[in-house]
Design a protein around this nucleic acid. Structure first.
Lengths: 204, 204
DNA sequence: AAATATACTAAACACTGTTCATAAAAATCA
DNA sequence: TGATTTTTATGAACAGTGTTTAGTATATTT
């Protein structure tokens, strides 16, 4: 049954082709402006064909969503080398912020957009996002054990740290700082200062 | 020329009619699911008529956007009574979070969505949003003056506080806590705990 | 070679925001 | 009053969206 194997490989190849095209277009123009017909044109297939490989548009972008988490996970890896846990926590925040600024579309899909989670997100409890959060949890726990940060519940602290970092970059990405008085000139600079102030308070 | 006056009143009335319908539908079903045709159906006019009173969909929702800020401003008013500035800062945070949880669609439009700002946001430097941020700035400054919080640049601290609060509620609204391990049961509870931890660090 | 299973697509459905020529109504002028 | 101009409203269309379906080629199996 080698033919059946090849057929399955072909099927996977065409799925990969769709994802590759979708990823390319998505990174060029974002979610909303990447239509099924755009992807179909790009891979030179009919729009209907795409629906033979994916149930809906969101299913395609959930895979890209996971790609984003893989990328973030990758950028977190070098941080494991940092011995001092508080320093590692600080670096974790900086890396998170840089990831968001360098990959705003990925970040949007992963943390801001409503779209590509529905029932999908629930199907796998231990997805890539959980891994990243676990890394944060572990680091916070270590900081607590070594009494490097203000004591408190590890979950609460992790949520606090994540919320701060997310708020910072998502307000920046959605240009809400601009629309206020602040950050008109030195855009990225104030983010770093806020990060430093936040960590200083945490470590106090 | 009383006729011309009446005509202008009529015109404003029809604008208000459109806004009222748009607001109603928006609060029922959100921005994306409120179409021009929905509004037209509701007010029993043709879709094209709406474009005689508003240049585009976003112009309608920018007014709703401002309504949201007026509402937030209103909820901030009682806080002026609070004498202790740190207490006021804490209450400011809680009020902000409660506003977001009680009016998720308004909050979305005001702080999360990409849509109804473009050039529009820039036209009036001193809009409702600036007022709210100014309130935060003043409160932070007072806390600094009274040495109630960790010293630092007032702008940086205000951004830090706002980012934290925004991150908290926007991750909640977009259900990113659920998709991780945390907050599956006691949803709103962890927000309050995080808020308390954040303020405790700030005041330390 | 005939029957079956697979892969693909043109066309349509039900939407979206937006524009434009045309028709109806109201106000102004002769 | 009747004719003219201005204001107001709309049907129909444009170009786009995600998605479904019926029908057509192609490839595999019998």
């Amino acid at each position: 049954m080698a033919i059946k194997d090849r057929k399955e490989r072909d099927k996977l190849d065409r799925q990969k082709l769709i994802i590759a095209s979708a990823t390319k277009l998505f990174l060029e123009q974002g979610y909303d402006k990447t239509s099924i017909r755009n992807i179909a044109d790009d891979i030179e297939y009919s729009p209907a064909t795409i629906y033979l490989y994916f149930k809906e548009k969101d299913e395609i972008f959930f895979i890209i969503h996971e790609q984003g988490f893989a990328l973030l996970h990758q950028e977190f890896q070098p941080l494991l080398e940092i011995a001092n846990s508080l320093e590692r926590l600080h670096a974790l925040g900086s890396t998170y912020i840089n990831f968001a600024l360098n990959n705003p579309d990925y970040y949007d899909l992963m943390f801001i957009m409503r779209a590509p989670l529905g029932q999908i997100a629930c199907h796998d409890k231990w997805d890539a996002g959980d891994h990243a959060f676990q890394f944060l949890l572990n680091t916070v726990q270590e900081c607590l054990d070594q009494k490097l940060i203000v004591p408190g519940d590890v979950n609460v602290i992790a949520v606090t740290v994540w919320s701060f970092a997310h708020g910072l970059v998502s307000l920046h990405i959605r240009e809400r700082f601009k629309s206020m008085g602040i950050g008109s000139d030195s855009d990225g600079e104030i983010l770093k200062h806020a990060m430093n102030y936040f960590i200083k308070n945490l470590a106090h």
